[in-house]
Design a binder for these strands. Structure first.
Lengths: 208, 208
DNA sequence: CTCCTGAGAGTACGGCTGTTCACTGACTAT
DNA sequence: ATAGTCAGTGAACAGCCGTACTCTCAGGAG
């Protein structure tokens, strides 16, 4: 580049990132509503007042974490939807993809499932909004599928809702299973696959 | 009675109940992990030290709330399972029963959904244990149903799991809908009924 | 009637919290 | 070269927190 993005701005983003990562670690053992501003800055090794240069309060930090955790997931979802193959194959690859994502970003998943119904309203609604967008994408994809083309718009949204909720619950189940060992992870995967098969069967006979 | 249960013990239980109810109110705007012991006693109008006569800490209070909120639900679930009628009728009455329960005990439902994945481990496991018991009851009932008799035990547990998770999610959806008005509640009910119909269809064709 | 138990009150402690203010000093635009 | 911007500092504030003491005094047991 002819002009770098600025040493100053780069350092600021680095500190901001450090605050978010420290918060994510601290949130493994508590909820956002009990996370203290000083607690976070102490973990980073920065003065408490420096926090205000990046976030208004811890709820603001929470919303930023939601964007980080779920914002990048849209691409993953689109990739899943456009995958080809038979029903069983698609189910396998979907569940595998969730398992890999949870394994790669456990703290993010924990944060989302914990705060989805958590005590901080702004964060709750931010998560709800993102999940609604996921459901929109899935519903739009369902409209392109031959077996759902004749469904009502409402029914397609219902099914999309089921898929998104199942994805979140499966991710949470994987997270819990990972702390107990590989065979528990495989059991969670088996459960998720059979649940998707159940939905798949219901979907096939919806218009009977 | 020839001898009353004791004026002393009665007063103690009254204070204990007051602490739990005050906590439930305070938890509408925060998570258990940020609930302070002093905060609860102040709401009741009792000295902070009196708290220790009833609970070791706020996590202990949380476990007591789990028992209160879910312990009485076993009877309700059994009543739902033994209800008779056709598939659509059973779905209607089940969803209606959930709606009425949420309307009658909103704070309990909020507490359970919030702390199910919340920041306090003891409470999380207490809720998970109760939900597992619910799934056990449903699985045992499924074994008595003609259409599931030939299923594997694992598959029956999978389906029971789906029913219990759906019940919790529907309760949470009703709770949120109630703050927006009656038509949103009806929309949530419609969604829940169609989701149950989808599961019902999948169940009917599981052994195809 | 007397003794004892125990729920709750009152006080005090050290430690933590969010927020304010004035400040430094490295970067950046001119 | 110079002036300005602004991320991060450090001290100070009032207020909350959990917990450890001692104390009181109704209620129950003998």
């Amino acid at each position: 580049m002819s002009h770098t993005v600025g040493v100053r701005e780069a350092q600021k983003q680095k500190t901001r990132k450090a605050l978010m990562e420290a918060a994510l670690v601290l949130l493994e053992g508590q909820s956002l509503s009990s996370l203290g501003l000083r607690e976070v800055t102490r973990a980073v090794g920065v003065a408490p007042t420096a926090f205000y240069r990046h976030f208004r309060d811890t709820a603001d930090l929470g919303v930023a974490l939601v964007d980080e955790a779920l914002g990048s997931l849209h691409a993953v979802i689109r990739a899943t939807l456009t995958a080809t193959g038979d029903s069983a194959g698609r189910i396998d690859s979907t569940v595998g993809l969730i398992a890999r994502h949870v394994h790669a970003h456990p703290a993010h998943i924990r944060f989302i499932t914990r705060e989805r119904h958590g005590g901080v309203e702004r964060v709750r609604t931010a998560i709800g909004e993102q999940l609604r967008l996921f459901a929109d994408e899935v519903a739009a994809w369902l409209a392109t599928q031959p077996d759902c083309a004749a469904w009502s718009e409402d029914d397609r949204r219902m099914l999309a809702h089921v898929y998104v909720d199942h994805m979140v619950m499966t991710a949470s189940a994987f997270l819990e299973a990972e702390s107990y060992g590989a065979e528990r992870v495989e059991a969670a995967a088996s459960l998720a696959r059979r649940q998707l098969r159940l939905v798949s069967l219901g979907r096939r006979h919806w218009l009977d």
